[in-house]
Amino acid sequence: MAEQQLNAERRFGGLNRLYGEGSVDILGHAHIMIAGIGGVGSWCVEALARSGIGMLTIVDMDHISESNINRQLPALGSTVGQAKVEAMQERILDINPFCRVQLIDDFVSADNMEQLVHLAPDVLIDCTDQAEAKITMILAAKRHNIRLLVCGAAGGKQNPLALKRGDLSLSTHDAMLAKLRGRLRKEYGFAKPKVDKVKPSTRIPKMGVEVFWVEESAIMPSAWQQGNTGPQGLSCAGYGSSVTVTAPMGFAAAQAAIDYVLKKSKVV
Rank of each mutant, 00 (worst) to 15 (best):
M137I: 07
M1A: 11
I53H: 04
V268F: 05
V267F: 05
Q255P: 00
I34Q: 12
K197V: 02
G227A: 06
K264E: 03
R203V: 14
K264Y: 01
R91D: 01
G81T: 02
L76N: 08
R91E: 01
R10H: 11
L48F: 02
D129N: 09
V243R: 10
L170N: 08
H29W: 01
E90M: 05
R147W: 01
K179G: 04
P160Y: 05
M207C: 11
K84V: 01
S109A: 13
A83M: 07
I135D: 11
D111H: 13
G166T: 10
I69R: 15
K263H: 13
M55V: 05
E187S: 13
S235C: 06
A35Q: 07
G77I: 02
A133M: 06
V59K: 10
L180R: 08
K186V: 03
S201Q: 15
F107I: 08
A254Q: 04
D167C: 05
A49L: 04
A30Q: 07
K164P: 00
I219D: 05
M220E: 09
V268L: 13
G41S: 09
D259F: 10
L180F: 00
S242C: 13
K179Q: 13
D129R: 09
K192D: 13
L139V: 03
S242M: 14
V85A: 11
A256S: 14
W224N: 03
